[in-house]
Amino acid sequence: MELDLVWERFLEQLNHSETGLSAYKKEVTGIPFLYVSLLASTIGREQAEHTIKVCAAQSIKGKRLSLLMEYVREDSHLLVYRFRFLVPQEKMFCCGNLCPDCIRFKHSRY
């Protein structure tokens, strides 16, 4: 799973949304931040956050990713969020090291 492709698809959808948002990603000390410019003055923070979450959900559809979005600050028409797509913490394959939490020992639900 390539996170760069997910980010690219997400930013493309967000920048082409009908709400008039312009967004870009910037990493500071390895932490990704999402900068969102409100181009239309009629859009509020709540509507912008809803649009961001909808575009993120469309970008990760069919993948085992989740979203972490934390509001950082607002400066006139610029919103800043700490924004990460999270990969699951559980193992998805057997590494052959006989781990006690090996995926081979999990019971199938089907």
Rank of each mutant, 00 (worst) to 15 (best):
E2P: 08
L5T: 09
V6G: 01
R9D: 10
L11V: 02
E12W: 08
Q13I: 11
Q13R: 14
N15S: 05
N15I: 00
L21P: 06
A23S: 09
A23G: 06
E27Y: 05
E27W: 03
V28N: 06
T29E: 12
T29N: 10
G30F: 00
I31L: 06
I31V: 13
F33Y: 13
L34N: 02
V36Y: 00
V36R: 00
L39R: 14
I43K: 15
G44E: 15
R45G: 14
R45I: 15
R45P: 12
E46Q: 15
Q47W: 13
H50N: 15
I52S: 01
K53M: 13
A56D: 09
A57H: 13
I60S: 05
G62I: 09
L65E: 00
L68G: 05
Y71D: 10
Y71V: 07
E74Y: 08
D75V: 10
D75C: 09
D75F: 09
D75W: 08
S76Y: 12
S76Q: 13
H77V: 11
L78V: 11
V80L: 05
V80N: 03
V80A: 03
Y81H: 05
R82L: 04
R82N: 09
F83N: 00
R84N: 03
F85K: 01
F85Y: 06
L86E: 05
V87Q: 10
E90Y: 13
F93D: 07
N97S: 05
C99D: 04
C99F: 02
P100I: 06
D101C: 07
D101A: 05
D101V: 07
F105D: 12
K106T: 07
H107V: 09
S108C: 08
S108W: 03
R109M: 11
R109W: 01
